[in-house]
Nucleic acid binder design. Structure first.
Lengths: 336, 336
DNA sequence: CTGTTAGCGCTTTCAG
DNA sequence: CTGAAAGCGCTAACAG
């Protein structure tokens, strides 16, 4: 006894339209060699029956699942909470959606698990974002030949979308230098991260270029948490020496929480100390005062990555891309 | 001519292990009626060949995809940016992961699109979160008989996980009332949302219980954006009457941005005006001063929803659940 | 305990 | 232009 919720298959559609199943398939897949009237009859039968082709059958036959796995490898625990990657993910979803691809979120999966996704053919490709990934994992993934695109990371032989961290940092520093600040601190959550290292490099090189010796007492790591910048700032303030005139945060959370430490220590921003961040997360513009920062077009980052993985899936090896950044000067670094 | 990257199938494993394909299948699916030594031989052949069963073939045969679609229907545009749902999503992913289920993120998909996911059998069920969904959409989805669980919303006949908004709001108000505040404002992004309406109801009922007439000039909507609370607060401050002594935000963003409006108007929190929010998003604890709020266990919300949809997929209709909230008193509402 | 066989629902030759 | 038939890779009877 069949329940009313039985799946309707191509065979029933064929029967109702009075054609063979191959014809139904053709009609649905836009085969040009089919009579317009036949196609119309098939299509209307599909509508009447509420027929939708089984994705499993289709995948099995075509050898592709029409979905891509998105892995987020970040140092923050519940990764999706990272506002930065949340935005990148938004861009990815938009681009995949536009290509009628599906997005398998695998932010918790690691190494073999990730590999398994591809080997089972549950996904046609993998988009790996974040630069807190062990090189060996990337090496292993790369070796398998799975279509793979890196976002915010790079690895020899793999296509990637990255950001000009060094250049961005230099522009931010130049801005601070131009405003007349000389003693500039650098606060970061961690330096075990290629992106932050590049930003630190930009900090150092801008300083060098301005003929300022880098005071290592002004560079601090505060730990991998939202409050990392807070702790780094505290540490800097606690060290002897003079208070810095400005602070460059390796990312917005670091800058924002360093800000908090400054405020707690009685300094006003930007009157006493200027602050500049990096990333331009949503929050930064709404902070009081709004945070000056180096904007990364996170949506574009995701979108570009998605388009690249789609290209890769379709057989064209995409060129790696480096996105430029844009300095956004807001209240936190403006001389009053 | 075969390339080296040809998929390895069950047949090759069978050949290598010197058994039939059914035996391989049994070994892999933990069939108890199989000789331990045979199983070992099969398993090692799988390992040697790097064999992973095709998910498409399996889905086709078993009639389930082992993945659930997650739709986020929220009033904020790039929905994933809503920090609240980002956390819920984290809980969902954890629970699905634990059950070896996959998560198809469909935050952009609407109505028919969502339905299609299920009809194509790309997902075994749908988790719909957010209460900014047209009733008719839910009605349509419900009628199809697709396994469906609502998070943060409810609809006749559909299992759901909700939050005790009314109760939570009453507790928050009682706290403010206990602290001696009488003129309490209510700011919200919108009232076209059942949850916020329930919170407003809690506001009103707590006021009534305390014998305080509700001054409608103290209730304001500021619009659907991060700064909604800001605009609402501005409006209240602009209206004649006295300044409120305290503000209850319908959610944390509203409270936080109302806060900003207060600060801009020269009021200090909590010295001049106390502020309490709702949700306890990550940011609230890190704000200066930290925001008092009504905590929702967002992770649990997601986890519960995920477990319910899994149950539903396995044929048991789960009971709807209402989660309790917890008042978290922090600096923004503490009498100094 | 294990092998053979029949499909799951679709796409795609290959003949008309 | 259209239909019949052959699988895609797997699982689940059904026989041994």
């Amino acid at each position: 006894m069949r329940t009313s919720s039985e799946r309707v298959t191509i065979r029933e559609v064929a029967a109702r339209a009075g054609v063979g199943i191959a014809t139904v398939s053709r009609a649905l897949n836009g085969d040009p060699e089919i009579a317009a009237t036949t196609r119309a009859r098939v299509l209307s039968a599909c509508r009447d029956l509420g027929y939708k082709p089984s994705s499993a059958a289709r995948s099995l036959k075509r050898g592709r699942s029409e979905s891509v796995g998105v892995a987020i490898l970040s140092r923050h625990a519940p990764v999706i909470l990272n506002p930065y990657y949340a935005e990148v993910l938004g861009g990815v979803e938009m681009a995949l959606e536009a290509a009628d691809y599906h997005l398998l979120l695998s932010s918790l999966k690691r190494n073999e698990e990730l590999l398994k996704l591809a080997q089972e053919r549950r996904v046609d490709g993998l988009l790996v974002m974040g630069c807190d990934v062990a090189e060996q994992v990337l090496g292993a993934l790369a070796k398998t030949g799975i279509p793979l695109v890196l976002i915010d990371n790079s690895f020899d032989g793999l296509p990637s979308v990255t950001v000009d961290h060094l250049g961005g940092a230099r522009v931010a520093m130049r801005h601070l230098l131009d405003e007349g600040y000389r003693r500039i601190a650098f606060v970061t959550e961690t330096l075990h991260n290629a992106n932050f290292q590049a930003r630190l490099l930009g900090y150092r090189s801008a300083l060098a270029e301005a003929g300022i010796a880098c005071d290592e007492a002004l560079v601090a790591e505060g730990g991998n948490s939202w409050e990392g910048g807070y702790h780094a700032m505290k540490a800097i303030l606690a060290r002897a020496g003079e208070t810095p005139e400005a602070v460059f945060g390796a990312n917005d959370p670091a800058a924002l929480t360093a800000f908090k430490a400054l405020r707690e220590a009685g300094y006003r921003v930007p009157d006493d100390v200027a602050v500049v961040g990096f990333d331009d997360i949503h929050l930064s513009a709404h902070h009081t005062p709004p945070l000056s920062t180096v904007r990364i077009d996170k949506r574009l980052l995701g979108q570009t990555g998605a388009e690249m993985i789609l290209a890769r899936i379709n057989g064209v090896i995409p060129e790696s891309v480096e996105l430029a950044t844009e300095l956004v000067v807001r209240g936190s670094s403006r001389r009053v």
